[in-house]
Design a protein around this nucleic acid. Structure first.
Length: 216
DNA sequence: GACCAGGCACATC
DNA sequence: GATGTGCATGGT
């Protein structure tokens, strides 16, 4: 909590996810895989302009045409397939009722999402937390980098280990999980890039020398 | 011209 | 089960 408060004090509430509807969150979560958010915004703007930002439209669109629309997000061929996989999965059982699909227990939803080819742990957790509004901690590259630099995890800590560490250390509140992850991204972008230093980082004094353990 | 970005699946050992 | 590789655009 001290960590969250330090970041929150510096950056303010991040008001995530930067997308309006649950569908937009799901689409964004897939498109942002290893990709800058500004590129994802362009891809989503293309989808909206083409009238394809709905489940029926995405279910009907040809994968090659979809790839053309999401080009700015990079990896457009694989992401077009991943989006189609997700949409087909929802559409088959729920038609365009995405809220219906999302309305179940975290564990059941997570398991189902992880069964979709192209949705891994971070994407699944992002959808659960930010589209379904349910309590699951989203771990990403910045999260690991920051915790690693503060010696709260070690290099071989995997996704589930880091997730459990955070969930055990925090009260299970959706808004806390929501904004904590967003704060990790905000701090990480500015201070915890692979080759960056940490001067001025709001986490600097916490809890050890922030430069210790950094690889050159 | 490097480096980086809110990963994931798949091949290979 | 661990490690390596392909996927691709756009901003700094």
């Amino acid at each position: 909590m001290e960590m969250y408060q330090a970041m929150r004090a510096r950056f303010g509430h991040q008001q995530w996810w930067p997308g309006q509807t649950p569908l937009e969150v799901c689409v964004g979560a897939i498109l942002t895989q290893n990709t800058n958010w500004t590129n994802v915004e362009k891809a989503i703007a293309n989808l909206r302009a083409a009238g394809k930002l709905s489940i029926p439209a995405l279910a009907a669109i040809d994968a090659a045409e979809l790839a053309g629309l999401i080009k700015p997000a990079g990896y457009f061929n694989v992401k077009a397939k991943r989006l189609k996989n997700f949409i087909a999965h929802v559409h088959a059982d729920w038609g365009d009722d995405l809220p219906g699909f999302l309305d179940r227990s975290v564990s059941a939803l997570r398991e189902e999402l992880l069964g979709v080819n192209g949705i891994g742990r971070e994407t699944a957790d992002s959808i659960i937390l930010y589209a379904a509004g349910k309590c699951t901690f989203v771990v990403d590259a910045y999260t690991c980098r920051i915790l690693l630099r503060h010696h709260l995890i070690d290099v071989d800590g995997d996704y589930e280990t880091v997730k459990e560490l955070l969930e055990e250390a925090l009260p299970a509140e959706v808004d806390l999980y929501n904004d904590f992850h967003a704060q990790f991204v905000a701090v990480g972008k500015q201070y915890c890039r692979p080759l960056a230093r940490c001067e001025g980082c709001p986490l600097e004094p916490f809890p050890h020398d922030p430069l210790a353990g950094m690889e050159e």
